[in-house]
Design a protein around this nucleic acid. Structure first.
Lengths: 361, 361
DNA sequence: CTGAAAGCGCTAACAG
DNA sequence: CTGTTAGCGCTTTCAG
């Protein structure tokens, strides 16, 4: 190692300096740093990984989609990774990909990583294939910690959010609430169905059949055409905001006004939600917080193989009330059938605020 | 190497088998593969990288945002990477990050990569800092190929698209077109301003002052409140769809109907564009094609250091006409002042189609 | 077609 | 506080 020679020390000392190990005199440290600077030295990660058996990197499996939810989660993971000192290796699997999540994980294992993040996996029916082969910590975002002995989960709790959304509609006075769900292969979609069903059951309401979309506004639009035909439908909880927006458009075209005739609650709180017509009432998802906490726990598990995993904290439940929900029947009747959360004080058609009032539960 | 022992061959032969090198008898190849299978052997990438000096990975610098455009581009890159055999190492830089793109690149250099992709960089004023230090191929997406001797660019051409959008409005009969631009630190935003200005100048129209937003619907909304006050404004070209949607909302609240009083063209063609009110006329961006072609050229540059870089092809210019644009003045007058592109045949308020008619130029 | 030998640049374990 | 000695698991080079 040339830096060592230039600084007149041993290779090991250089190593110590670069790893911030103790027991290096200030003087030697300076000399080493200067020499490195002069030579434009940069330490070789491959060699480090080879010698130490650790790559200091985390593999990320993403679904190849620009959907707001998954994309936000990934961005959150990338942001959070910067603070952990781990590099990210990203591989991507798509719906319908024959290799699926298992193939993606396999390729991360080939690349060499110290831990794995799987974001919003879908149920492919053969997750078990991997369980035995993955002995490193695995963080599953937005799904149960299937797979692998050292699995962690974060970003669950969609069921509770779905329940809150449904109850908001119930408290407004709707007899029951229909659900426009995401594709049932997604765990995230299933959780929402469960929460919705739980709310209805708990309040003794009839549980209408689930309508299934594919997260897209187009599928929401198609579902909206169906639902518009049924005069009984006065409240719909949609599995995400995009579907809610397509749904609202279809309802409007069918002559059913939102929220006067039908109330709609979305899920995610996309940045556009306050600006569509009408501004959308929706459940805000704490993507950043979920990613950050999840990564913290993953890194802990990587660095403390023996220790117990850190406990997950419950994510906040945040209902943002805007203008797509109202009591049933034509007229808006202030003060009746309202939830504990206060509505935004401006009129229904006042300029959208970024937030809308929210209800932390 | 245990596989070698089990198969009764030398280490080198195993290496040959796994690298698909010629000169291995079918028999030996079989034995090696079987032995590897039995031992669950998986080749160590760190060792490979160390010995060969190549990491077979590409570094990606992203802006930490879930904005549709940048997110789609990244997804496109990830998808394209799967076919190249290169792994992806992603680091993320945020607006306002003091280290900026330079810091992100630096960290990729530390990690060791064979090439770099920088997606939609913003002008930070000190890009030059890196030029000298980066001797590997760099692909810049959505910006000029600044930085580094071996830089490539892809996904440019926004100026031409902006020009087409502006001309669509001019051909509809509008006297001039206002522009709601993205933040001018983004090269992508600047290109659109240029194209817009070029179109106006070429047609001898007055060039109104640029209104600058930050890509968000909120900023579009704010700009819309301003523009609504000016009765001269009959056509606006927005730098992206989110701003266009915020803008339309503000106009509507100010009593200016879209498209009857004001026409609006967006940029990106987000999946929601057909479902907002009114369905948005917009320029579709070919994110996937750009990412794929860019990556192909980058890999070519990595693997053929001496060869000339592959030439970039021009991306298609694709105007999707929906219902947010119309001739000026109240009534819609079919057949007058129209562009060569045919309008979608259904009425203005017919169910949104996924596409809308488009105009390839 | 196959093998032996020599590192790649670092860290780990142990001496000083 | 600092140095020595061995590898980590591959690819490369040169001989068979």
């Amino acid at each position: 190692m040339d830096v060592a020679r230039l600084a007149g020390v041993s290779q090991k000392t250089v190593s110590r300096v670069f790893n911030d190990e103790p027991y290096v005199s200030a003087d030697v440290r300076r000399r080493v740093l200067d020499a490195a600077e002069e030579l434009g030295y940069r330490r070789n990660n491959a060699a480090r990984a080879l010698a130490s058996g650790r790559t200091r990197s985390i593999g990320v499996v993403t679904l190849g989609t620009a959907l707001y939810g998954p994309a936000s989660l990934i961005m959150g993971v990338e942001r959070a990774a910067r603070d952990t000192g781990y590099a990210l290796r990203v591989v991507n699997t798509m719906e319908g990909d024959p290799a699926g999540v298992a193939g993606a994980v396999e390729s991360l294992l080939d690349q060499g990583v110290d831990g794995i993040v799987i974001s919003e996996p879908i149920d492919e029916g053969h997750e078990g294939d991997l369980s035995a082969r993955v002995d490193m910590p695995v963080l599953v975002l937005g799904a149960p910690p299937i797979l692998a002995p050292r699995a962690l989960a974060a970003g669950t709790g969609a069921d509770l959010m779905a329940r809150t959304a449904t109850e908001h509609l119930l408290e407004l006075g709707h007899a029951t609430v229909h659900h426009l769900a995401g594709p049932q292969r997604w765990y995230a979609a299933r959780d929402r169905v469960e929460g919705w069903r739980a709310a209805l059951t708990a309040h003794g309401r009839t549980v209408p059949p689930v309508v299934e979309g594919d997260w897209s506004a187009a599928s929401g639009y198609a579902a909206g055409r169906e639902l518009a035909r049924d005069g009984e439908v006065t409240a719909v909880f949609a599995g995400n905001d995009d579907m809610a927006i397509g749904l609202i458009r279809a309802l409007a075209e069918a002559g059913r006004r939102v929220p006067e005739d039908v109330s709609v609650v979305g899920f995610d709180d996309i940045p556009l939600a306050p600006y569509v017509t009408p501004p959308l009432t929706t459940m805000r998802q704490p993507f950043d917080a979920v990613a950050q906490e999840g990564l913290k726990r993953l890194v802990h598990a990587i660095e403390n193989p023996q220790a117990l995993p850190m406990p997950a904290s419950d994510p906040p439940v945040d209902l943002v009330i805007r203008s797509s929900t109202a009591p049933p029947s034509t007229r808006m009747t202030p003060g009746r059938g309202r939830s504990a959360a206060s509505r935004s004080s401006g009129g229904r058609h006042s300029p959208p605020r970024n937030g809308g009032s929210s209800h932390h539960g």
